[in-house]
Design a protein around this nucleic acid. Structure first.
Length: 284
DNA sequence: CACCATGTTCCTTG
DNA sequence: CCAAGGAACATGGT
């Protein structure tokens, strides 16, 4: 469900709602959604802790918790997988069918819902160490992107999805950024010279920032209730116009006319993921 | 029924 | 060692 922009928007939304609140209850409804995956061990660590910070790293939500007596800080790392959501709801409201973990924050509960159960709430922060640079960081320059791409013949689209190379880009925004940059998804990394690297660098930042700005200004339905869970991740008010789908340039638009030149958008599979491009706007 | 899905990991094959 | 492909995870939408 989430790529970098969606997680960023979620974190900005959640932060003021959860910060400084104490976890007075933990209900693990799916042991597999939690690490360590014994509910008791997970609970014991969280109960009584206070949420001191919430940040995004790549597609992860990183909560900084402070334990009760010793004030020792430790991270709780969330990943939404494909279909995960997090939202607050009043304590006695009925939980959704696939609520995996519920943190009782006093008046309200923080619900981690995840129909496909690919997501995790984990006390192991080690995966964060392996991540590549943040494409939206101030210090991230075209030279850094060039370094990240390396000299392999791996298709550029596949490399963009590698979280150890670059953090946070997923299947939607990889196709979108390559379209904006005018680069074909199959182009080997070695063949991106300074000009293409500069265009891709700009395109990545544009596309990701645009999505964050969009998600920050449009009302989102965090629980996903009464909304189809469409391409923007938290469901929409059914009455609201479908802005987001209109915003995507190539993703999911197989066979439809390119918004720039009218050529039919092509879909192909790279590294087992659907990839969309315009044959004319993204020439070799 | 068939096919698709925003992610990641693991295994096999070349 | 590297790259690529497939399966697995589990459920829901079209």
């Amino acid at each position: 469900m989430p790529e970098l922009p969606e997680v960023e928007v979620l974190v900005r939304h959640l932060r003021p709602l959860v910060i400084e609140r104490r976890i007075c209850g933990v209900e693990v409804r799916r042991a597999k959604s939690v690490r360590p995956d014994t509910a008791a061990a997970f609970r014991a660590r969280l109960i009584g802790g206070r949420i001191r910070a919430l940040e995004r790293r790549a597609k992860f939500l990183v909560f900084t918790l402070e334990s009760r007596p010793l004030r020792a800080a430790f991270p709780l790392v969330g990943h939404l997988g494909m279909t995960g959501r997090m939202f607050l709801q009043p304590r006695r409201t009925a939980l959704p069918k696939h609520a995996a973990v519920v943190l009782d924050l006093g008046g309200e509960c923080l619900v981690f819902e995840d129909p496909r159960y690919f997501g995790r709430l984990s006390l192991d922060a080690a995966p964060l160490e392996q991540l590549g640079p943040e494409p939206l960081a101030d210090g991230f320059a075209p030279a850094d992107l060039r370094a990240v791409l390396g000299c392999s013949r791996q298709p550029i689209k596949v490399r963009l999805l590698d979280q150890q190379a670059l953090a946070g880009v997923g299947n939607i925004y990889a196709s979108e950024a390559l379209f904006v940059a005018g680069i074909p998804p199959t182009l080997p990394c070695v063949r991106l010279g300074p000009k293409r690297v500069a265009r891709l660098w700009r395109a990545l930042r544009t596309v990701l920032q645009e999505a964050i700005d969009f998600g920050s200004t449009v009302p989102l339905n965090w629980s996903g209730q009464n909304g189809s869970d469409g391409l923007f991740y938290y469901g929409r008010d059914p009455a609201a116009p479908d802005y987001y789908e209109e915003r995507l340039r190539v993703y999911g638009r197989q066979g439809k006319p390119c918004r720039v030149c009218g050529t039919a958008i092509r879909r192909r599979v790279l590294a087992a993921r659907s990839t969309f491009s315009c044959p004319r706007c993204q020439p070799r």
